[in-house]
Design a protein around this nucleic acid. Structure first.
Length: 748
DNA sequence: TTAGGGTTAG
């Protein structure tokens, strides 16, 4: 019986149920006294992944009357093979109490488990043992310890051990180089690589790969690709790992020629069976904009692997093919393919980045319903969707969700929250998120400044700009867009010029298109139209539609016909299909009573098949976001809305309000004009909010066009009459209305 | 019988 059992347990094909049967027999026949048999049983349990808790192994080992080092050794090796690393450490810790002393062979496996678990404390204990026992002079033990320190980000400790090694082989050199690479210390990695060669140790593929990945991950794409070329010249034959190390850099450089060469090599060497190679290849083609080649690689792969699918989906949406990405995603979901958090995050991100904000929120719910746990990347991918549609309730829920998940100090989450709260009108909450951040980065500073800028808070924007510099954070071109647009919102020409001039002089940042657009807006809004036009004429490159559009739109505000016509003449060929531009010019004509000219523009629009963009507004009521179109009768509560609006109009007229009909630039009767103004979507949305929320609750509305003067006046009045704070976000900025006053100071 | 390298989501 003993013999049969022993054979059965040692068989490489032994199953868990056989192990259980054997276990029962061992118990029944009281065969636990046999160390070999019991050890084999333990190893088998470990190999079949069935030892889920250390307790089981300890219970079993307690039956061993005289456990030997061999018992523990085989147990530890079995745990390591089956990736039960915590059990490795537990088993190792039971050696000493039993009077057993580890040998050198047991240390590397144990140390590796510490490394994988990032268990620095236990790793240091093993290190102490290695020093005391002298095993530290064993090069493999030292190698393992170095690796453990590197994994725990203790580069100095790793280096100390490395420097003390009398003999260093290619393995330990490669480990140090890869360690420096991973931590972004590229100079050190490069230095060691040279030092290694001068010591007469030749690199192998592993060494090259470690260096390549470090270069690529730190943005040194050119150097990574160059290093890859050198490697080829020196006669090294890249393996799958090398290829997947270098392809991300090839993609970032959009070097299609190199990419295709690597692709040919991959086919020749038969590396397409390597899942890392496939996903790196898809990623590379996606980044290079080669959708056809990417799709071909994807179609040619026999079995869809999750990493490749994720790379493919990202590649599609990177190239504007969000619908195709969603189609592939839905198809594979329906086919019950197991999708992971990367897949879900990828589609959520492509929705929120491409105007599919409602879909992004829906996917987030769906993801959790499918049992996939969102992580620290999912959250900041989703948050912008809430900001885009001013869905404050959803945004707050996701904020809470991230706190519940223990995501407190993630710089991406923090920056996304700053942006979301600002876009939902809650600038104080936005600032609080910024103040709570442990280590804000450039994106976080830009987010808080852009928030203040869109709320027209120039003083705060400039304060943050100076705080940022005091903190040692250098600005980038986006920082200046925020500062300049804040100046533009407030007509601060002097300050605007100051920051604009300091850009290249003090910060070495050359003004880009958007900075010129800000300056043109700033000057033209305050009526300095000629000065704005001079800036345009002096630009070192051709102005784009934003720049001319800014000028035209200010010409409309100041009803400047001659410059307006110049701007329109430049703008129309740049954006022939944008109805807004034609409307601006026709409005200038209309404001001057030039109905023939106005008509000519309208006819021009008609002949191009263009219609005025319908104005629409969004408002979140409870968990639902409603969209209202101007003069739209389809909303089920429209009758109530119009009734309420009528009542409000009566009250306003009593207190001296006159409808600003000069904003209805159509050749119609005065009373009809009033009717048209009543149908503006932002008013409808505000009234819908009044009807469906409790008194005193703030309302936030987004409008797809710029708010008109009349709506501005009416909603200001409503804020007073109804005692509500009302936040309106138009395409230009925020209007925070309270007690009949707007935060923009009526300048927008 | 023990030590070193890789892809995909913000």
């Amino acid at each position: 019986m003993f013999h049969v059992l022993s054979q059965c347990l040692s068989s490489p094909t032994a199953t868990l149920s056989q192990a259980r049967q054997a276990h029962a027999l061992i118990l029944k026949l009281n065969l636990f006294s046999d160390t070999h048999l019991t050890t084999t049983l333990l190893s088998l349990y470990a190999n079949t992944h069935s030892l889920s808790t250390p307790q089981l192994s300890l219970t079993l080992s307690s039956h061993l009357p005289h456990p030997t080092l061999f018992s523990f050794s085989s147990l530890i090796q079995a745990f390591a093979r089956s990736s039960h690393f915590p059990h490795v450490l537990t088993a190792f810790s039971h050696l000493a109490p039993r009077g057993l002393v580890s040998d050198a062979f047991l240390l590397p496996t144990t140390i590796k488990s510490c490394a994988i678990l990032r268990a620095l404390n236990q790793g240091q204990q093993v290190h102490a043992f290695a020093l005391a026992s002298g095993f530290v002079s064993d090069s493999i033990v030292a190698s393992s310890l170095i690796q453990m320190y590197l994994k725990c980000d203790r580069i100095v400790d790793a280096r100390k051990l490395f420097d003390r090694m009398p003999e260093r082989d290619v393995v330990v050199w490669s480990a140090m180089i890869a360690g420096y690479s991973r931590l972004g210390l590229v100079d050190e990695a490069r230095g060691l690589f040279g030092e290694m060669r001068s010591c007469g140790v030749e690199p192998n593929l592993v060494t090259w790969n470690g260096l390549l990945v470090g270069l690529g991950n730190n943005g040194l794409y050119d150097e990574a690709v160059g290093m890859f070329r050198v490697m080829l010249l020196e006669g090294f034959l890249p393996d799958g790992s090398t290829v997947s190390c270098v392809l991300p850099s090839v993609g970032c450089l959009e070097d299609v020629v190199m990419g295709s060469q690597v692709h040919c090599y991959v086919i020749k060497e038969g590396l397409l069976c390597d899942k890392f190679v496939v996903s790196a290849m898809l990623d590379m083609y996606g980044k290079c904009g080669c959708v056809k080649e990417m799709s071909r690689v994807f179609d040619e792969v026999e079995e869809v692997e999750i990493g490749s699918l994720n790379a493919f989906l990202t590649g599609l949406s990177r190239n504007g093919m969000v619908d195709s990405a969603l189609e592939v995603f839905n198809r594979l979901k329906d086919q019950k393919m197991e999708l992971n958090v990367v897949t879900w995050t990828s589609v959520i991100a492509s929705c929120s980045q491409n105007g599919k904000d409602f879909e992004a929120l829906e996917l987030f719910r769906d993801m959790q319903a499918n049992g996939v746990e969102p992580n620290a990347v999912t959250i900041p991918s989703l948050i912008p969707a809430c900001g885009n549609i001013s869905a404050l309730t959803h945004g707050k829920e996701i904020h809470c969700f991230s706190l519940r998940k223990g995501i407190f100090d993630d710089v991406y989450v923090g920056s996304a929250l700053i942006d979301m709260y600002a876009k939902c009108g809650r600038i104080q909450l936005s600032r609080r998120c910024f103040d709570n951040m442990l280590a804000p980065n450039l994106v976080s500073w830009n987010a808080v400044m852009s928030g203040y800028a869109m709320h027209g808070k120039a003083k705060e924007t400039m304060e943050m700009f100076h705080m940022m510099q005091q903190s040692g954070q250098k600005p980038d071109s986006i920082t200046f867009t925020c500062v300049l647009s804040a100046c533009a919102q407030n007509g601060l020409t002097e300050e605007g010029w100051h920051y604009y001039n300091s850009m290249s002089k003090e910060h070495g940042i050359e003004p880009k298109m958007e900075h010129y657009a800000c300056m043109v807006t700033l000057l033209s809004r305050v009526g300095k139209l000629e000065e704005a036009y001079s800036i345009i004429k002096e630009m070192p490159f051709e102005p784009d539609a934003c720049v001319w559009g800014a000028l035209l739109s200010s010409c409309r505000v100041h009803n400047n016909l001659s410059l307006g016509e110049i701007a329109a003449e430049k703008l129309f060929p740049l954006e022939p299909a944008n109805p807004g531009n034609y409307v601006l010019l026709s409005n200038i004509y209309a404001s001057k009573g030039l109905w023939d000219e106005e008509n000519r523009i309208r006819e021009m629009m008609k002949s191009k098949g263009l219609r005025k963009n319908p104005g629409y507004s969004w408002i979140e009521v409870g968990h639902k976001v409603h969209m209202l179109l101007a003069s739209d009768q389809s909303h089920p509560q429209m009758k109530d809305i119009l009734e309420k609006l009528d009542k409000l109009n009566m009250e306003m007229k009593k207190s001296g309000y006159l409808p600003k009909t000069n904003f209805v630039l159509q050749d119609v009767e005065e009373q009809d004009k009033e009717q048209i103004l009543c149908g503006h979507s932002e008013k409808l949305a505000v009234v819908l909010g009044l009807l469906n929320t409790s008194p005193g609750q703030p309302l936030q509305v987004i409008k797809n066009l710029r708010i008109c003067d009349d709506c501005h006046a009416v909603i200001k009045a409503i804020s007073k009459l109804e005692g509500r704070e009302i936040y309106i976000r138009d395409t230009n900025r925020f209007h925070h209305m309270k007690d009949g006053v707007c935060s923009c100071g009526d300048f927008w």
